[in-house]
Deep mutational scan, measured.
Amino acid sequence: YYKILGVDKNASEDEIKKAYRKRALMHHPDRHSGASAEVQKEEEKKFKEVGEAFTILSDPKKKTRYD
């Protein structure tokens, strides 16, 4: 999950949140509406992965379990 968000394992809550926003905007489906179906599908997959990574890393209990 750290790799997906592009943050270090010791990243602060704020750094995780900023990285999530950056990656979410980058891969958001609306940004790729004019792209081919294949690209849209890949970006949607990445967008979901970013969301999942943020869900785990932003919750202290889940993050501890993950680490």
Results as ranks from 00 to 15, higher is better:
Y1I: 02
Y1K: 04
Y1D: 11
Y1R: 01
Y1C: 00
Y1H: 03
Y1V: 10
Y2S: 07
Y2K: 02
Y2R: 00
Y2T: 05
Y2I: 14
K3E: 14
K3H: 10
K3M: 08
K3V: 01
K3G: 12
I4R: 05
I4F: 03
I4W: 03
L5V: 06
L5D: 01
L5W: 01
G6M: 02
G6K: 00
G6V: 00
V7Y: 00
V7Q: 04
D8M: 02
D8Y: 00
K9P: 12
K9W: 03
K9H: 11
K9I: 08
N10V: 04
N10A: 04
N10Y: 07
A11W: 00
S12N: 09
S12P: 06
S12Y: 02
S12W: 00
E13Y: 13
E13C: 10
E13N: 13
D14R: 06
D14W: 02
D14S: 10
E15V: 08
E15S: 04
I16T: 05
I16A: 02
I16K: 03
I16V: 05
I16R: 04
K17S: 08
K17N: 10
K17C: 10
K17M: 14
K18P: 01
K18T: 09
K18Y: 09
K18D: 15
K18H: 07
K18R: 13
K18F: 02
A19T: 02
A19D: 03
A19C: 02
A19F: 00
Y20R: 05
Y20L: 06
Y20M: 08
Y20T: 07
Y20A: 11
Y20Q: 12
Y20W: 13
Y20G: 07
R21V: 14
R21P: 08
R21F: 11
R21H: 15
K22E: 15
K22I: 13
K22Y: 09
K22T: 14
K22P: 04
K22D: 10
R23L: 15
R23V: 13
R23A: 14
A24G: 06
A24F: 10
A24V: 11
L25R: 14
L25H: 10
L25V: 10
L25F: 12
L25S: 13
L25E: 14
M26G: 10
H27V: 01
H27M: 04
H27I: 00
H28F: 02
H28R: 06
H28A: 03
H28S: 07
H28L: 02
H28Y: 00
H28V: 04
H28D: 07
P29T: 02
P29A: 07
P29Y: 07
P29G: 03
D30W: 01
D30T: 12
D30K: 11
D30N: 10
R31A: 12
R31W: 05
R31C: 06
R31M: 14
R31T: 09
R31Y: 04
R31S: 09
H32D: 01
H32M: 04
H32L: 06
S33Q: 12
S33W: 09
S33R: 15
S33L: 13
S33Y: 05
G34R: 07
G34S: 11
G34K: 12
G34E: 14
G34Y: 06
A35L: 06
A35F: 05
A35V: 10
S36K: 13
S36D: 07
S36N: 11
S36T: 12
S36C: 09
S36H: 07
S36M: 08
S36A: 08
A37E: 12
A37D: 13
E38F: 05
E38Q: 10
E38L: 08
E38A: 13
V39E: 09
V39P: 04
V39T: 13
V39A: 09
Q40W: 04
Q40P: 05
K41C: 05
K41R: 14
K41S: 10
K41M: 11
K41V: 10
K41E: 07
K41Q: 11
E42K: 07
E42I: 09
E43M: 09
E43D: 01
E44D: 08
E44Q: 12
K45R: 15
K45F: 02
K45V: 09
K45D: 05
K45S: 10
K45N: 06
K45E: 09
K45W: 00
K46E: 00
F47Y: 14
K48Q: 12
K48R: 13
E49Q: 13
E49N: 05
E49P: 04
E49D: 10
V50A: 06
V50G: 03
V50N: 06
V50L: 14
V50C: 11
V50H: 02
G51E: 15
G51F: 14
G51M: 15
E52T: 09
E52C: 02
E52Q: 10
A53H: 03
F54L: 06
F54S: 11
F54D: 10
F54N: 09
T55P: 00
T55C: 08
T55Y: 10
T55K: 15
T55W: 05
I56T: 14
I56C: 15
I56F: 11
I56W: 13
L57M: 02
L57N: 06
L57S: 09
S58W: 00
S58V: 06
D59K: 09
D59G: 02
D59M: 00
P60R: 08
P60E: 07
P60A: 11
P60D: 13
K61D: 15
K62M: 11
K62D: 09
K62T: 14
K62Q: 15
K62G: 08
K63Q: 05
K63R: 15
K63T: 05
T64M: 13
T64E: 15
T64Y: 14
R65S: 15
R65A: 15
R65G: 14
Y66V: 15
Y66H: 03
Y66C: 10
D67T: 00
D67L: 01
D67W: 00
D67N: 01
